[in-house]
């Protein structure tokens, strides 16, 4: 009886001791989390970084969406917080504020390339030649009609425009936890929405609210998970049109066909040149206060920016990243070297 008790007590002290021991122990592996769009790129870089620098551990890359990653990033400074947040959109001022309140005052912003957002449907369905206003009309809660705003009456794409396939409208878009959603709204929905004179007549804030409102009759499906979930939706629903990253579409070309937007087919070239309208820069944020504490942090950032890993013909380009041009690359590399902080 007594021995049992003392054993239990022993176990408890062991746990407590364990906790104590680790507070003093510094971490020597870079910890990264954030955007699921950036995850494949960051994972490749992390792995190659481990191969190229035998003196550093291979960084660990988590997911959780841009918002989730930045929230974790802003939790504070110390070995139990992450060092780098991946993001498919620039950090917001509210997030910076949150960071500052928790003591994360020194942040280095690194832009490392571009990514395209594509609309794709099942290979055995009709093909789409989309214009921004088609997407807006398909997904909006209310649409302008003859000077008035009416509840969205469209149920088939062909009702919106006779050039579109005669298919049920089902639009599968990323949930608001994804940075991709913001880009989708800003580069497709808003231009489409604001092409209507009824919307142009509204006030600015009303305009944004009106354009962002999505219909709730089940024809717009928000996906909180990753693109595989979107793909599964398309597998189940033949008529659905999904929003994907270019790299995801590229690796599943046998099942998907891509839609043109404003007449341009998305590809590395058309996105790189800016011809294809739906693209965005990708970022990661480095906690400058951890540089020097966590070995290899600045080296990782520089390695990520090297043309060898992210330029033309590099592993990242193979994975679907659209490289920056050399002047941009040089400029950002210089900023990282001098550890220029976000103001």
């Amino acid at each position: 009886m007594k021995s049992r008790h003392s054993k239990a007590a022993l176990a408890l002290t062991a746990v407590a001791g364990l906790a104590m021991a680790t507070t003093a122990m510094a971490r020597d592996t870079i910890q990264i989390a954030g955007s699921s769009t950036v995850l494949p790129f960051a994972s490749i870089v992390a792995e190659e970084f481990g191969h190229a620098f035998p003196q550093f551990n291979t960084p660990v890359v988590g997911s959780g969406g841009s918002g989730g990653g930045l929230r974790q990033f802003c939790q504070g400074v110390g070995p139990n917080t992450i060092d780098i947040a991946n993001s498919s959109r620039p950090i917001r001022s509210a997030e910076l504020e949150n960071c500052r309140n928790n003591g994360v005052t020194e942040i280095i912003e690194v832009m490392f390339g571009y990514d395209g957002i594509v609309f794709a449907s099942r290979a055995d369905g009709g093909s789409f030649a989309l214009e921004p206003h088609h997407v807006f009309l398909a997904g909006a809660a209310q649409v302008p009609q003859n000077g008035r705003l009416v509840n969205n009456p469209y149920t088939r794409w062909s009702q919106i425009d006779s050039s579109l396939p005669n298919q049920e409208i089902v639009l599968v878009i990323p949930g608001s936890n994804h940075g991709t959603r913001e880009v989708y709204e800003e580069t497709v929905v808003h231009p489409g929405c604001k092409s209507f004179p009824e919307v142009q007549a509204m006030e600015r804030s009303a305009q944004n609210n009106f354009c962002n409102a999505i219909r709730t009759d089940g024809r717009v499906v928000e996906i909180a998970g990753d693109y595989t979930e979107t793909l599964a939706r398309l597998d189940a629903q033949r008529s659905a049109l999904g929003v994907f990253g270019l790299s995801f579409y590229d690796q599943n070309r046998d099942r998907l066909q891509v839609a043109t937007v404003s007449g341009v087919t998305p590809s590395l070239e058309t996105i790189g040149s800016g011809e294809y309208p739906v693209s965005r820069p990708l970022f990661f944020y480095v906690k400058n206060q951890h540089v020097g504490e966590i070995p290899g942090l600045l080296e990782y950032a520089q390695f990520f920016l090297s043309a060898e890993i992210g330029g033309m013909g590099s592993p990242l380009e193979d994975a679907g990243l659209i490289p920056m041009d050399n002047t941009e690359r040089a400029q950002i590399t210089r900023a990282v070297r001098s550890r220029t902080l976000v103001q």
């Binding site: 910890q31 990264i32 699921s36 994972s43 291979t58 997911s63 595989t228």
Partner: peptide, 27 residues
């Protein structure tokens, strides 16, 4: 649920677990 490209050598090293690996590969 992070991507970990090395085999952990102690319980304090970063690591995944079998069910989580299934979840990661599924994605």
């Amino acid at each position: 649920s992070s991507f970990v490209a090395s085999v952990p050598s102690s319980p304090f090293d970063q690591s995944t677990a079998l069910p989580v690996q299934i979840y990661l590969w599924q994605g």
